[in-house]
């Protein structure tokens, strides 16, 4: 019997093991082929789905590539001005303490123009979750230098590579945030392999669960690729990320249960 099972018999709802969550809309993602944003969106929405939080969740989309996140996440959402998502989320959560509130921000949004809002929301210990997508570049505007651009890394405004003497150092925003007493859980993840996606999803779930316990700000960085901005194929970009981004932005938990993780 085993050898004779047909394809049609296998493709049957009772045998389903993975399907895109209904918390993602059916709109075609506006991201470039291979971009990690899509995976990051999906794992967040899978957690919202698994925890049954659709009716209780309010998301805040940033300015940047994910400005249209509300087209893809099947929840109530608001689009913020550049860098201001943590200010919006502060008010939303304070006025709706029973809701699950998150911001989804890129490195330009969170670590450059929105540094003040990010740090102060974290320092106040606001009970929402920040998802920080760090690809070391401004993707949407065409690949300019971001605060997180690595030293020596080329971008359209560092065409010969970033020199710290003239352009400053790459900013480790997540380590900085972890120092603040208002943050409870701070972690850095990636979504380039099935293993990393599963780990990142676990981190997303932890963050949302801790938010529900009013523990303070929870912060999940996802180091991601920008193959268009980096001028590489998606597969090359993921390898470049492993070789260059991860040594500077090492993956793993930075703060757990309100305590810095000793390395």
């Amino acid at each position: 019997m085993a050898d004779t099972i047909t394809k049609a018999e296998i493709i049957n709802p009772e045998n389903l093991v993975y399907k895109k969550t209904s918390m993602m809309t059916n709109n075609v993602l506006s991201y470039c082929p291979g971009c990690g944003h899509g995976t990051a969106h999906r794992i967040i929405m899978e957690v919202i789905d698994e925890m049954g939080l659709q009716a209780k969740t309010i998301g805040v989309a940033p300015v940047g590539c994910s400005v249209l996140a509300y087209d893809f996440m099947n929840i109530d959402m608001q689009q913020a001005a550049h860098g201001r998502a943590p200010a919006l989320a502060t008010a939303i959560k304070r006025l709706h303490p029973e809701k699950t509130v998150f911001t989804y921000q890129g490195d330009g949004d969170l670590a450059a123009i929105g540094t003040a809002e990010t740090i102060h929301a974290a320092n106040r210990g606001e009970n929402f979750t920040i998802f920080f997508i760090n690809n070391g570049i401004y993707g949407m505007t065409g690949g300019q230098m971001a605060p997180t651009t690595l030293e020596g890394m080329k971008s359209s405004t560092t065409p010969y590579g970033r020199e710290w003497q003239r352009m400053g150092h790459p900013l480790k925003m997540t380590e900085l945030i972890a120092q603040l007493p208002g943050t409870y859980y701070v972690t850095r993840q990636a979504v380039h392999t099935p293993v990393s996606v599963r780990k990142a999803k676990k981190a997303v779930r932890t963050a949302i669960e801790l938010q529900q316990q009013n523990k303070g700000l929870t912060f999940v960085e996802i180091v991601s690729n920008c193959n268009s901005g980096w001028k590489m194929t998606p597969v090359q970009a993921n390898q470049w990320m492993v070789d260059n981004m991860f040594p500077f932005y090492p993956l793993g938990d930075i703060k757990v249960d309100g305590e810095l993780v000793k390395k």
């Binding site: 045998n15 993602l29 990690g36 995976t39 999906r42 099935p194 599963r198």
Partner: peptide, 22 residues
Amino acid sequence: TGCTNCAVVCPDGVITVYRVKV
């Protein structure tokens, strides 16, 4: 084998996976 690796890592979420024990 229905391991779901491809679906999990697919940025666009375009893969649905079914699995049976044979």
